[in-house]
Design a protein around this nucleic acid. Structure first.
Lengths: 134, 134
DNA sequence: GTAGCTGCAAACTCTTTGCAACTCT
DNA sequence: AGAGTTGCAAAGAGTTTGCAGCTAC
């Protein structure tokens, strides 16, 4: 049976090729925020002839469809994650670990700030960088 | 007389070459958030033999010294601004215009969120993307 | 004088693209 | 059947770097 993610892609008009199924499976199982290279390396285990160009193309498509979120954590390349729920990231500066969090108050505040400036909030990015308190 | 920015650089151990003076002047006068290319183009008006490699090297140095802030507004390249005061950005999705803002409530909330997760906030990034309300 | 800086060009990294062959629907 | 997708290799954009000569201190 096709996964929820596969159904979503089909409905968006994408052909469900073997390569795309592999990439979607990797993304849905990922517990981190893999780079293109990461996705490519993992994909090769299921389909050793897959091309990195296909990974790039697929991730760009999924990003446009909002099925996936592209992050640029100031590293010079992109990282991806499935757009399941809305959350933000706190990056542990000592270990590089990424912690996800949600905060209702913050959501309201962002909308208010934009509104006060005369804008309707369409999108936003928030990342915190911190050190663990011992 | 050397500008404040020049003094700051000298104190950090940088030699104040002609090229660096030009770049610092451009940055301090900029009312936008220029890319490397932008800085290079403006610099050529004062020193037509300046190299873009020098602009890259200088901006990287200034970023390391926290004299300048490097932004990556999901455009595939970096933009810079002098690190005068702390603020955030709202990007107008229709015009690309960048609006700066500060918000005390937001500052407190970020610190609290990090603390609740067991972290001391060291740094952070926040960008809002919106459409002007007619 | 000398450590640091510069311009140049080549190299590097990440990403995109043209094309002919292939494949999902 | 046919539009969409793929792999490959080449190209593109942005950035970094090795080196010989130059310059601020």
């Amino acid at each position: 049976m096709p996964s929820d993610l596969e159904v979503k892609c089909s409905e968006a008009g994408l052909k469900m090729t073997g390569q795309r199924k592999v990439i979607l499976k990797i993304l849905s199982k990922a517990e981190d925020h893999p780079s293109v290279e990461d996705v490519y390396d993992r994909a090769k285990k299921f389909d050793k002839s897959i091309s990195i160009a296909t990974v790039y193309r697929t991730l760009s498509l999924l990003d446009e469809l909002d099925i996936v979120i592209r992050h640029e954590f100031q590293e010079g390349y992109s990282r991806y994650e499935v757009n399941w729920d809305h959350h933000h990231h706190l990056v542990d500066l000592e270990t590089g670990k990424v912690i996800e969090f949600q905060n209702e108050e913050l959501e309201k505040l962002k909308i208010k700030i934009a509104k006060d400036l005369g804008y309707e909030l369409v999108d936003h990015r928030l990342e915190l960088y911190g050190k663990k308190i011992k």
